[in-house]
């Protein structure tokens, strides 16, 4: 089964006068349990791609399938299935947690969606599930009754992970999940992400500008440049033997800590 299939997807923003091709003719197949890293710089279209996969916006043209099902934003049954099986974490955990909500309410939000009412594959005992995911991401259970500002950046990203895991998704989308974090915290969150993806057999699609993170966490990589997927394939072959000039430039741009 494929997790996601994109077939000649285009996304155009703007009116008739000034059109911007955020994504041009993008085709990509993500099989289940693969870990994809999508690398690109600002304006490459990587965030647009993630939003299309998350069902937050439709493509202008082209076909998108998830778990062998056509993604139709107006179809309630499809959306219910997407919302229970695809979850997302964001770059800045300061911005992705509502400061006025308790952690338990934040984490249980995906479970409370009316779309998921009556589904058997979604946990029903919310309090129990909140406690369960809190321990899975390594946070104390008394976190549930506290507010986001009481936590550090790394802990907040754990909370965001707990929220994403709450409905037992099959696919996890991640938008620069560690780039807003300190180097010292980054390793912890990456380790946790790896462990969780392993133990819950998740498909991971991670957008990032950090090639080191991709090399460490992902087994496939796609390079986006100005809305075009210029290169894609297994991490080892793309990174050790880049075919495209842009990929090479990107690889050389990273300052290494040689030791």
């Amino acid at each position: 089964m494929t997790a996601f299939l994109l077939d000649h997807v285009n996304k155009v923003f703007g009116g008739r006068r000034r059109e911007v091709n955020a994504l041009s003719d993008l085709s990509l197949t993500v099989a289940q349990n693969q870990r994809w890293g999508i690398v690109g710089e600002s304006g490459s279209g990587k965030t647009t791609l993630l939003k299309i996969l998350a069902g937050l916006m439709p493509p202008t043209s082209g076909r998108v399938q998830f778990l062998d099902r056509d993604l139709d934003l107006n179809n309630r049954a499809t959306m219910a299935s997407l919302r229970s099986s695809v979850q997302m974490i964001f770059q800045d955990p300061r911005s992705s947690l509502n400061p006025r909500m308790k952690i338990s309410d934040i984490i249980s939000e995906p479970l409370r969606s009316p779309l998921l009412k009556g589904r058997t594959d979604v946990p029903t005992d919310m309090r129990a599930r909140v406690d369960e995911v809190l321990s899975e991401v390594g946070l104390p259970l008394d976190s549930a009754d506290r507010y986001p500002h009481e936590f550090s950046g790394g802990q907040r990203q754990r909370i965001a992970l707990a929220r994403a895991l709450a409905p037992r998704p099959k696919i996890l989308l991640a938008d620069e999940p560690v780039s807003a974090l300190d180097v010292s915290v980054r390793a912890q969150v990456l380790n946790l992400l790896n462990t969780l993806v392993d133990s819950f057999e998740l498909t991971l699609i991670m957008v990032t500008h950090d090639l080191g993170v991709v090399r460490h966490t992902c087994d496939y990589v796609g390079v986006l440049h100005q809305g075009v997927l210029v290169e894609s394939g297994p991490v080892s072959s793309v990174m050790n033997d880049p075919r495209q000039g842009y990929t090479r430039e990107l690889l050389n741009a990273v300052p290494r800590l040689d030791s």
């Binding site: 998350a54 219910a80 979850q87 969606s113």
Partner: peptide
């Protein structure tokens, strides 16, 4: 423009509830 609105949408929260739960208190 905050990510928790996106997170709420990904969580399948209806727009009316987003207005009450996320926007109004903030």
């Amino acid at each position: 423009s905050q990510d928790y609105i996106l997170a709420a949408e990904v969580a399948g929260t209806p727009r009316f509830i987003i207005a009450l739960r996320h926007i109004l208190p903030n």
